[in-house]
Structures are given as structure tokens and as C-alpha cells.
């Protein structure tokens, strides 16, 4: 009982996020009738699954104190390679999935390797990787990256049990798995150690470089899964389908209580951030806010979350001895 109380107390802001999300839906559905209907909630839930996969992937690099800015083209790449391969190159569906998995793992490994071993700054490396993937995609498909999504994937992405979309259940399973990885596996413990202090982790015998590289690989795979589900829901793929997600994933991670300095927070927290953002996003669509206002809001929200988090640490007494 005591243990559960401690868990509740430590995660109060995450619970707050879930509570605010539910309250938001309830309040808006008073003003706009359709907002709280079961069909709209099921739409929200499958949007949540797409964003959620990207966000739980992003959690891992952020936990090491890095960042993954290659999420937009990683998801785009997965979707376009699958569709282009099946439609134009006549690959079979399993083969296409294998190629997608290989490409995303390769891209994640290259980013992770350069960051861990060659000491490239994570932001520069992943943003460069974003640019490389974009160029590779453009030159491979010659700019015609459309094409319809294969039927199997569309059926999976649109399937429902009652009003619950299957992809949301799939996402819940994803959270559970990654949560177990973080909290119960040796890799999770090592990841937190690396995020908190690389030096101390190194002296305790942890292979810091391998742990960092694995974080970027996990992020790449999660982004690819998110991209595939999105292409399944939309029914086709197009270039630039992930562009708006660069800020959103970071904002969700920051709201979800993951420290940008690394070593604090977990997957369930970042999922709560994703849920809150999904609902705010659809609220803005209902209120007919323009793209500019939306982007402005992401910036302000992200900044606010960061400042709150930074101040919490300072009030908690971990203040540096000298002050500039």
C-alpha cells in the first residue's frame, strides 16, 4: 500500500495530464455536441496511437540527454518505402516490411553510432539524418512519392473492436512493453544511469556508447511504426507527411515530465503528454485555429513546460554552488 502511495505521489503530474485530457473532452463536448461522441472519441484514440508511437520513441534519446529530430522523415521514409515498393517495384508485402525494418534500423544505428562513438552533437546528427533521408527518398522515388497503402495495412489501421481502434490497443501493448524495458530490464537501469551522469555510469562499468546507440535505434523503430499506421489510416503516403511532428513530439515529451537533461521520466508519462496534445490539437481544429497559431502554441507550451521543469529542480535544492 505504501509503495502504491509513493508511486502515485511521484507521478501526480502525469495523472494530472490524463485528468486534464478527460476534463477537456468533457468541457468541449458541452459547447460542441459531436466532440464527445463515441465516433469522435475513437478517431481521437487512433490519432493518439499515431502520435503516441512517435513520442514513446522520442522518449529514449531524450532520456540519454539527447534528442531525435529525424522523426519526421523516419516515419515518412517507412510509409513511402512500403507503398512505393509494393506499388511500383512489385515487392510482396512481407518483403516490403522487411526492407522498411532494415532501413529504419540502419538509419537509427548510423545516427546512434555517430552520436556515441564519433561524438557528433545529437541535434546536428539527427537533423542531418533527417535531411539525408529526405534526399534519399526524393532521388529514389524521383519525387513521385504517392501511392496507395497496401490493403492489409489499411484494414489493420482502421479495424475496431466496439469503438476501440485496434491500433490503440496495439499502442497500449507498446507502452506496456517499453515500460517493462525501462523499469524491469537491465537495459532500462543502464539507460537511466547514462542519462543521469555519463561519467559515473562509465565508471560503474556500463557500456555508455552501446546504451546510447540502442536508444536511437528504438526511437527509429517507433517512428517507423507510427509512420506505417499513419499511412494505413490516411490510405496513402506523401512527402512531408511527418513534417509537423518535429515540434509536437518534443512538446509531448516535455509535458509528459521527461527531463530534457536526461535520466528522468518514463514512457507512460510521455504517452500522457501525447494524449493531451492530441486533444488540444483536435480542439484547435474545431476552433478553426490556423497553422501559424498552432505552431506558436507548441512553442509557448514547450517553453513553459521546460521552464517549469527547470525551476522545479532548482527549488528542489540541486542548485549549483556558484551563480553567474
Amino acid at each position: 500500500m505504501e509503495k502504491w502511495k509513493a508511486v502515485l505521489k511521484n507521478n501526480s503530474d502525469i495523472l494530472g495530464n490524463y485528468l486534464i485530457s478527460v476534463l477537456l473532452v468533457a468541457v468541449i463536448s458541452i459547447f460542441y455536441r459531436g466532440f464527445g461522441s463515441l465516433s469522435h472519441i475513437s478517431v481521437l484514440l487512433s490519432d493518439f496511437a499515431i502520435l503516441g508511437f512517435l513520442v514513446i520513441g522520442q522518449t529514449f534519446p531524450v532520456l540519454t540527454g539527447g534528442i531525435d529530430m529525424s522523426v519526421p522523415y523516419m516515419m515518412n521514409c517507412a510509409a513511402v518505402v512500403l507503398n512505393y515498393g509494393v506499388n511500383t517495384k512489385n515487392w510482396s508485402l512481407p518483403a516490403a516490411f522487411l526492407v522498411v525494418a532494415a532501413i529504419t534500423l540502419l538509419a537509427g544505428t548510423v545516427s546512434g553510432f555517430c552520436i556515441a562513438w564519433l561524438k557528433v552533437h545529437p541535434m546536428i546528427m539527427t537533423y542531418g539524418m533527417n535531411s539525408i533521408l529526405m534526399g534519399a527518398l526524393l532521388s529514389w522515388t524521383k519525387g513521385t512519392a504517392g501511392g496507395f497503402t497496401p490493403e492489409g495495412l489499411t484494414i489493420f489501421a482502421k479495424a475496431k473492436i466496439g469503438f476501440l481502434p485496434v491500433v490503440t490497443l496495439f499502442f497500449a501493448a507498446g507502452i506496456l512493453t517499453l515500460m517493462l524495458v525501462l523499469k524491469r530490464s537491465a537495459y532500462g537501469k543502464r539507460l537511466y544511469a547514462v542519462g543521469n551522469c555519463k561519467r559515473a555510469a562509465y565508471f560503474s562499468g556500463i557500456n555508455v556508447k552501446a546504451v546510447t546507440m540502442a536508444a536511437y535505434m528504438i526511437s527509429a523503430v517507433c517512428a517507423a511504426v507510427g509512420g506505417l499506421i499513419m499511412s494505413g489510416r490516411v490510405g496513402q503516403s506523401y512527402l512531408g507527411m511527418g513534417d509537423s511532428y518535429m515540434f509536437i513530439t518534443l512538446a509531448a515529451v516535455a509535458i509528459g515530465g521527461i527531463s530534457m537533461n536526461g535520466g528522468k521520466g518514463h514512457v507512460a508519462g510521455s504517452a500522457s503528454g501525447a494524449l493531451l496534445i492530441t486533444i488540444v490539437l483536435s480542439m484547435l481544429t474545431v476552433l478553426k485555429a490556423s497553422l501559424g497559431v498552432q505552431q506558436l502554441l507548441y512553442g509557448v507550451v514547450l517553453l513553459g513546460a521546460l521552464i517549469l521543469e527547470a525551476n522545479k529542480i532548482r527549488f528542489g535544492g540541486r542548485r549549483k554552488k556558484y551563480d553567474h
Partner: peptide, 12 residues
């Protein structure tokens, strides 16, 4: 089409 690929590679 290779422009952005090359820019990324050169940066890294």
C-alpha cells in the same frame, strides 16, 4: 533531388 542528401552528409 540529391541536394539535401549531400548537404546532410557534408554537415555530418
Amino acid at each position: 533531388y540529391m541536394t539535401s542528401l549531400l548537404q546532410g552528409v557534408i554537415l555530418i
